[in-house]
């Protein structure tokens, strides 16, 4: 079984932010005390209580707006999650990967991990720390909903079909088919790291125009930390003991 996956079609995203709000509602996360900072995007960034954020970037050429790019950002649920590889070095029960769905789950033992290392391991700049508890948080694929045959909250609420969820192979197929169509209007459209992730994003323009960490490959070949390198070489440290 290949587990579950998302397909996020940015050509269909209108930045209504239903996903961002539904995520907060399902997880019962508090609102952050925001102010307008000269942007529609708010909160300004992901946080321990903001797993899902619609990023909004103006694409400007010669002072004129060519496009307004919307990107519902979230954990990509890597098929081989580097955060887990690194985390397992310190506590193998802090970050779990569900066997059936493939969901990467941060538990209440993430306070046993070093946040800087976990954040540095993530090519997509996703994990966030709660300074009060030293716990780390990020999208949990609405794991509790999914194992009860319900869609993740962000997917359920999406009005336009930008957010999709299902078996990973179906999502991959949907992404491939949609990419072919979208390329007619946007020849540079790409899927973001489609073979490595459970969250496949169709970017109709250069991914870095949406966010600097939209795709991993643009950071260059893997800059492993020492710990990551060990993790890769030996697998779970405790398993060796």
């Amino acid at each position: 079984m290949d587990g579950k996956g998302f397909f996020i079609d940015l050509t269909r995203c209108t930045a209504c932010r239903g996903c961002q709000v539904a995520c907060k509602q399902w997880h019962n996360h508090p609102a952050e005390d925001t102010r307008n900072w000269g942007s529609f995007q708010n909160p300004p960034d992901l946080s321990y209580v903001t797993y899902k954020l619609v990023r909004m970037e103006e694409y400007v050429e010669n002072g004129q707006v060519k496009d307004w790019l919307f990107f519902p950002d979230q954990c990509r649920h890597c098929i081989q999650p580097p955060c887990k590889m690194v985390g397992d070095m310190d506590d193998e029960r802090a970050i779990l990967q569900d066997f059936d769905t493939g969901a990467v789950l941060f538990t209440e033992r993430t306070n046993n991990l070093f946040f800087d290392e976990i954040l540095a391991s993530c090519p997509y700049d996703i994990p966030r720390l709660d300074e009060a508890t030293n716990l780390q948080g990020k999208c949990d694929m609405c794991f509790d909903r999914v194992i009860n045959d319900k869609l993740p909250a962000c997917v359920l609420v999406c009005p336009t079909g930008a957010m999709n969820f299902g078996d990973l192979d179906e999502m991959r197929q949907m992404a491939d088919e949609r990419l072919e169509v979208v390329k007619e209007e946007f020849p540079n459209a790409v899927l973001g790291d489609p073979n490595a992730l459970r969250v496949i994003v169709l970017f109709h323009r250069e991914p870095t125009r949406f966010h600097h960490a939209a795709v991993a490959s643009l950071h260059g070949p893997g800059r492993f930390t020492r710990k990551q390198a060990f993790a890769k070489m030996f697998g779970n440290r405790k398993a060796l003991i």
Binding site: A31, T34, R35
Partner: peptide, 11 residues
């Protein structure tokens, strides 16, 4: 609160 968070202020 979640809507106010997303669009908090007159602009």
């Amino acid at each position: 609160p979640w809507l106010l968070e997303a669009m908090p202020q007159q602009f």
